[in-house]
């Protein structure tokens, strides 16, 4: 995993949208997510609450189903989750029809306790039916060398 290769791959792939999907936010899944994370605020665990909404980290799991573009070069092995960040523009509600775009936001190499790692930052941007932004999730996926 020489640096020059990473630089080339970064130049070629960063910023490219490689997947889009449409989804409907599921009430039961929102609820199970919140309860199993220990939420107690009725906004997240009471479906009858007038402000019922997804708990903060809920959209992060939607990344799990998609990893990289089909023709993305093979870099290292595995797919450890190195971290997730979420930025909210407005609450996500049960029944919301959302559109998501996935792109590679960054690629870089570093070393850590587990050896050489390449971080691939996968960014998913959610918008609502009107095209207004809802949330952005960055997933820092680690491939090991």
């Amino acid at each position: 995993m020489a640096n020059v290769d990473i630089a080339t791959i970064r130049d070629e792939w960063v910023g490219r949208v490689f997947q889009e999907l449409d989804l409907v936010v599921d009430r039961e899944r929102m609820l199970d997510w919140a309860i199993s994370c220990g939420e107690t605020d009725p906004r997240f665990v009471d479906p009858d609450h007038p402000d019922f909404q997804a708990s903060t980290a809920f959209p992060t799991h939607i990344n799990v189903a998609r990893m990289l573009p089909d023709d993305f070069p093979q870099i290292g092995t595995g797919g450890i989750d190195g971290g997730k960040s979420i930025e909210w523009q407005r609450p996500m509600r049960a029944g919301d029809r959302l559109h998501a775009e996935v792109q590679i936001a960054d690629i870089y190499a570093k070393t850590g306790r587990s050896g050489t790692m390449v971080f691939i930052v996968n960014r998913m941007t959610f918008t609502d039916a009107d095209g207004a932004p809802v949330a952005t999730v960055d997933w820092r996926m680690i491939r090991q060398g």
Partner: peptide
């Protein structure tokens, strides 16, 4: 990791 993130939010 995302469960841990959810616990921090809680």
């Amino acid at each position: 990791g995302i469960m841990s993130q959810g616990q921090l939010a809680a």
